[in-house]
Design a protein around this nucleic acid. Structure first.
Lengths: 345, 345
DNA sequence: TTGAAAGCGCTAACAA
DNA sequence: TTGTTAGCGCTTTCAA
């Protein structure tokens, strides 16, 4: 391994001196621009390699007015972040694309405060810290789809397919297809009283799942009247389940695994067997889902792919390229928490 | 709300011109340095406010050779990230401190490859992108405690209390106390055959929990022979449980909630009641833990506090200040998955 | 093909 | 108390 170089990192002047050329020549040589002989280019590259030199990101940023960084601002309480396996996968996908691109990710977590969130974006722009931004957790009446273009900041939104974000392109998540698959699966098993526990109505990815459930129910000729909000929390999911159970559904579709897990416990405490007396489906395919008792039937998205697509799209926008990204379809994972309804009920 | 300013952001020259002073005066005025009259300072500040001006981070970075950013490089597969509520809380805590500091967080996720991880740090330093870094997931034979100081990069490690990271200060997580509390709780209930499922032995936070279990068992005069590795995954936890169950423990302590959840399912499939025939404890207090059936007795850390302490320490180190951070104690949350052992077994 | 020089936006040392 | 100026490390003219 090369020896580490503590203290001041080498500058372009060091490279130039050692290669016996001017700073300008070094720049041309290393950026593969014409105006320098092959021989010189080779020597310069070798010296740069040997010195372990990289251009200072700040010096480059001053010239090109590019920060070589993209931003992700999240208005969520840490606890709400922990709940969400989508986020971790998304990050991984983003990084996989950023990796070779020369840009890095600047992450800010600001708690549930839309105003602080907007200020974060403003400040990142004013300080020229980022060249573009991701827009997650699109809300009802969200100001960001207007704010980011107004700031002159390229942006990519991630949300349910069909979401309108004005000038901001959207990587469409096909949550709806996942919910429809869950409804179809349950109908096929013979269920007719299929309830739905939505998340937090302020989020588009919550309302879109509710809408998808409604539409799927209607398309099967079933009433879409049994639903309640669980706010994506365990407590909320449990409370919604308690209320819904009074109306005797034979199956409940939850907009998240966490709520489904809480719901299963409530059902069991009410003396119902899962899936014998009540079928349950979740959403997300948390790591726990496959290892519950019974294992949870759920919808698996591919957050890594979504992150990669979003990052690809954002970089393309920043660099003025065009791409037509494909966003992956969700998948229904059928496990043990769904079964035909009991004839008793 | 102030109108957004698309296009080129204002520079210090714009502020100077509008305020009718020189650029130098603007700099002094806004950084609250002496050498400028109160009257001028007031006017300059007002103009800056009105123009919505912030100094370019890159220009400042060139002068002070500071990037006003700190780095966090994570060598984990996205799936392994999703499993871990600690990480999300830690991020939240870090951000809460960074928020008012003028620094931001640069995050890199590189997959499980120690060499890529090291290269990430090297590159961030060479490009002068960060002023300091966090060191998480300390492993056996980890090269980073040597690498980061060699790169001249201030760093703060986060790991089990007592971990030696050479020149890198460690924010000690007192996992051991949590495990000891779990053992104590079970012993008090009357258990004597208490097994332990560790995580992935390569991580210090895995071995430290195993060691804590051993030591606690011995201190109660019990043998510490029933243990197995579950690698922090659901599959691993299930497999370890199957093996351990043959040796008829009355309780199993798991090094993570995910493994505990998988273990409970395995026990139930083997015809054992939890907690009637087998008591179970987890670690992390995942959002699901309280909503399982039965709810899981587990150890809760305070990852938000840990993140805040680590960030505080890192900033202090970068700025040459001294602090003596306190790291919070973990807490045993007793729920329904633990009970006195059945007299039958 | 090469070298010298200007300038990106800012701070700090200087002179007025 | 002020305004001027020299750079920080780099890219990009422009001359040689």
């Amino acid at each position: 391994m090369s020896p580490e170089t503590p203290g001041t990192p080498p500058t372009i002047a060091d490279v130039a001196r050692l290669a016996g050329v001017s700073k300008g020549a070094v720049s041309l040589a290393l950026n593969d621009k014409p105006g320098v002989s092959e021989e010189t280019r080779r020597r310069v590259k070798q010296v740069a390699e040997q010195l372990n030199w990289r251009p200072s990101i700040h010096a480059r940023a001053m010239l090109r007015s590019r920060a070589f960084a993209v931003g992700l601002v999240l208005a969520r309480a840490p606890r709400q972040l922990a709940v969400d396996p989508f986020f971790a996968g998304f990050l991984g996908g983003v990084e996989s694309v950023l990796d070779g691109s020369g840009s890095v990710l600047v992450l800010q977590v600001v708690g549930e405060d839309a105003e602080k969130e907007a200020d974060s974006y403003r400040q990142l722009v004013r300080e020229r810290r980022i060249d573009g931004a991701f827009l997650l957790d699109i809300r009802d009446g969200d100001q960001r789809p207007a704010l980011l273009p107004a700031l002159g900041l390229p942006a990519v939104a991630v949300g349910p397919a069909g979401t309108d974000c004005g000038q901001v392109p959207v990587v469409g998540i096909r949550d709806g297809d996942g919910i429809a698959a869950a409804v179809g699966h349950l109908v096929e098993l013979g269920h007719r009283k299929i309830a739905f526990v939505e998340g937090a109505p302020v989020y588009r990815h919550s309302t879109s799942r509710l809408d998808a459930w409604r539409q799927a129910m209607r398309s099967h000729g079933l009433p879409a009247d049994l639903h309640d909000a669980g706010h994506f929390t365990g407590e909320g999911g449990a409370a919604a389940t308690r209320r819904l159970l009074r109306r005797r559904p034979t199956a409940i579709i939850y907009a998240s695994d966490l709520m489904a897990i809480a719901g299963m416990s409530v059902a069991r405490e009410a003396g119902l067997e899962v899936p014998g007396d009540l079928s349950v489906t979740g959403f997300d395919d948390n790591p726990e889902a496959a290892h519950l008792h019974p294992p949870l039937t759920t919808v698996r998205q591919d957050p890594v792919a979504v992150g990669a697509v979003a990052a690809e799209l954002l970089l393309a926008q920043i660099e003025g390229r065009r791409t037509t990204p494909e966003s992956p379809a969700p998948q229904l994972i059928v496990r043990g928490s769904t079964a035909p309804p009991s004839p008793m009920r």
